[in-house]
Amino acid sequence: MPLMTDDVASQLKEEFARLVEPVRLAVFSQALADPESEQVRRLVEELAAIDPRLTVESYNFVLDKEKVESLGIARIPAIAVMGKDKDYGIRLYGLPSGYEFGTLVEAILDVSRGDSGLSDETRAALMELPRPVHLQVFSTPT
């Protein structure tokens, strides 16, 4: 049984009409340790089936150690939202339900556009940063 209703799927089809470049979604789950993470994998697979420009790579958090390390995955469930040739470092952790589902869709659209929407001034200032900075945004589904 699909996790996504037909209504949601058709809304997403409209949203994804705005996609520009292909987007890769790498999902990390582990059925034994975290059954909920399997739900996330299924959800992302359903989401990607809506538009051919979206592709899914599914990984096991325990078995696919190399991928876990190369993409810097800290915990599960995790979704890495990546461009065709570029990884912008966007990682979503936890269940993408409620408000967070919208965050996932927005992340996909941003990556597809290859544009964060930041001003030229901000971009120039960020180029001058002396070292990488990790930003973590904590939220709840409601």
Partner: peptide, 16 residues
């Protein structure tokens, strides 16, 4: 990050 599933992180970073 949807923090409900990670109570240890919510505590570590004092997410209220």
């Amino acid at each position: 990050m949807e923090v409900t599933g990670y109570p240890e992180l919510a505590q570590k970073y004092g997410v209220s």
